[in-house]
Design a protein around this nucleic acid. Structure first.
Length: 427
RNA sequence: GGUGAGGUGGCUGAGUGGUCGAAAGCAGCGCUUUGCUAAAGCGCCGUACCCUAAAAGGGUACCGAGGGUUCGAAUCCCUCCCUCACCGCCA
């Protein structure tokens, strides 16, 4: 959520920044400012009436205790009460409209972000390793099916299309990768492990920006009888973990907070079938190890660099070729000011697959979830929040078995997985 | 799921219709006393929003959330959420 004061004071700056995203959101700014002015006007009038009622009510109390007649005064206060009722309704409506609009407007891109409205404007920051040379490389669907690492047909019997069912050594490899990543991040990178609820409340989904705008992409349960308290299947551990400290005021010396969590992730993403969705690349449920940081504003960009490095380390230790790109303004997620994607090389698809997205949301999420810290001057300020996949499992799994494929049909695994998987190769 | 007890400021905890944004204590900050420590005394010490661009100042709201009763609600009523205890059920 943008700071309404910034929007009020520098509307042209805000509009020009929003325009860089190419989503047309700058058009909402004028409407927002109208709602803001309307709300404040109603609020000021309401406060004047409240002050009047407060004063007169006390006079009623005084008269009564002295045994004096107060009926005329009471009648006057009753009238004010009626005015207050209608004005406060107006105020509430204006306030809700303003907030709804504010929730619909995305974050401002970082000043240095590459400008562009499609992925071709993304900036390649660096590449690591090199593409393995594999003659007639098979893709992960062929390899995985042949070695019975997963069973997509039977998965469709269980969950429908767009689900994976890992089987046998495939399931074991999945488990090994999770364990490997959690161990690395907790033992060597200093992250605190959390195993959170997979179902989260609406407020949390709003806090991390999945709602209200992307409700159609989310799995939601039935609301309860009151119509509130609806639960959603978390589309990423970002939701429960970033919201862990929602509505809290943290001490400055606790920052940065570094969390790692393994969770399944549930996404509707009614994407079309095709190459993009082949095999296990895009599915409705997948496993992910997620990194989250809560930082002071001054340090968030330095923390983004180390966060990205922590995620990259997984790929490096597994010996997988990847590149890091910085997303252009048009490709940036709704809440993000700056994002690096890590793309791992898929020999089977001869393409880079997004395996991690590392973002700094600045105070955009913190403002929505009212997550603050007390700074050195004792002032409460919004924290900055960041997250990175560290990493998403299916794409990592796919790259791993494609890169490890041997002429004889087996798959060789990186040495570092040996203690986790228990064997140097599959098949 | 059932029954009961609760939810008040950073913490403890008083407050059952009016002058209560809220006693008191603890913690914290400042000052005085002091060789240092300790102790004592005095003062300050919630958040958000509005007037307002900021400061000073003023105002409004907030006692789990939402609604209601009333001239007036932390206080009375209703619904919901959460916590604790016991019972039931269950991996």
């Amino acid at each position: 959520m943008l700071d309404i004061r910034l929007v009020r004071e520098q509307p042209d700056f805000v509009k020009s920044r929003l325009a860089l995203r190419g989503g047309g959101d700058e058009a909402k700014v004028d409407e927002l400012l109208r709602m803001d002015a309307e709300r404040r006007k109603a609020e000021t009038a309401l406060q004047a009436l409240n002050a009047e009622r407060k004063k007169l009510s006390k006079e009623v109390g005084g008269k009564r205790s002295r045994g004096e007649d107060s009926t005329a005064l009471e009648e006057r206060v009753r009238e004010i009460g009626d005015e207050i009722a209608s004005l406060s309704e107006q105020t509430t409506i204006a306030d809700e409209k303003e907030r709804d609009l504010l929730l619909q407007i995305p974050n401002l891109p970082h000043a240095a972000a590459p400008i562009g409205d499609n992925p071709s404007a993304n900036r390649v920051m660096r590449e690591w390793g090199k593409k393995p040379e594999i003659a007639d490389a098979l893709d992960h669907v062929v390899i995985g099916t042949r070695l019975k690492l997963f069973d997509l047909e039977r998965a469709a019997k269980l969950g429908g299309s767009g689900f994976i069912c890992f089987t046998g050594t495939g399931a074991r490899l999945e488990r090994a990768l999770i364990q490997f990543m959690l161990d690395l991040h907790t033992r060597e990178h200093g992250y605190f492990e959390i195993s959170p609820p997979f179902l989260v409340r609406r407020d949390c989904m709003i806090g991390t920006t999945q709602l209200p705008k992307f409700e159609a992409d989310m799995y939601g349960l039935e609301p309860d009888a009151s119509g509130r308290n609806q639960l959603f299947l978390a589309p990423t551990a970002e939701v429960p973990v970033t919201n862990f400290h929602r509505e809290e005021i943290l001490r400055a010396d606790e920052l940065p907070k570094k969390f790692v969590a393994y969770t399944p992730c549930f996404r509707r993403e009614a994407g079309s079938a095709g190459r993009e969705t082949r095999g296990i690349i895009r599915v409705h449920q997948f496993d992910k190890v997620e990194l989250v940081k809560i930082t002071a504003p001054e340090n968030s960009y330095a923390e983004l660099e180390s966060l990205t490095a922590d995620a990259e380390r997984i790929l490096q230790l597994l010996g997988l070729h990847y590149r890091a790109i910085e997303l252009c303004t048009g490709d940036l997620g709704f809440g993000s000011a700056k994002t690096y994607d890590l793309e791992v090389w898929s020999p089977g698809q001869k393409a880079y697959l997004e395996a991690s997205s590392c973002s700094n949301f600045e105070d955009f999420q913190a403002r929505r979830m009212n997550l603050r810290f007390k700074d050195a001057n004792g002032k409460n300020r919004f924290c900055h929040t960041l997250n990175a996949s560290g990493l998403a499992l299916p794409r990592l799994f796919a790259a791993l078995i494609e890169c490890g494929q041997q002429p004889g049909g087996s798959v060789r695994l990186p040495e570092i997985l040996l203690p986790y998987f228990g064997a140097p190769e599959i098949g």
